[in-house]
Structures are given as C-alpha cells and as structure tokens.
C-alpha cells in the first residue's frame, strides 16, 4: 500500500516537507511523522531519501484502484 510505515522517526519533518503530494503530516502529540493521506502517495520515495534515519518503508503496491490506459 504505497508508503507503508514509519518506524524510528525523530520528528525532523524532512519527509513531510519533501513529499510532493502531502501524504505525511506531523502528529502534534507524539511529534512524529504519520502517514495521513496514503491514497495520494505516488511511490516516488522522496520522503525516504530525505529521511535522515531511514525510518520510512515503502512498498510498490497500491491498494486503491489503479487506472491504466491499456495492458
């Protein structure tokens, strides 16, 4: 399911800023990144590349219906 989990987050917000489609937000209570709008994840891995502690796990599958032109 695209961006799947965040573990070991230090709450630096790099991923939140770097996600082009605004998938991740900061949990104001725990001060950690939480996956908030996974349906908009485009599986581009920018969040993971920007994360200083490699906390983000992304899988290639997307669970919402995927529309393709043909094939």
């Amino acid at each position: 399911m695209a961006i799947e989990s965040i573990n070991g987050c230090i709450g630096c917000e790099e991923c939140i800023k770097s996600c082009p489609t605004d998938v991740i937000r900061l949990d104001q209570k725990t001060k950690k990144a939480i996956i908030t709008f996974p349906e908009d994840c485009q599986i581009c891995h920018l969040c993971r590349l920007y994360c200083p502690v490699d906390a983000i796990t992304i899988t290639p599958e997307k669970s919402i219906p995927v529309i393709v032109s043909w094939g």
């Binding site: 230090i10 709450g11 630096c12 790099e14 001060k31 950690k32 200083p52 502690v53």
Partner: peptide
Amino acid sequence: RVITSFDNI
C-alpha cells in the same frame, strides 16, 4: 539533523 531534533522528547 538527528542530534538537533530537540522538539522530540
């Protein structure tokens, strides 16, 4: 980044 994330308890 890691050692300056003081926001995080």
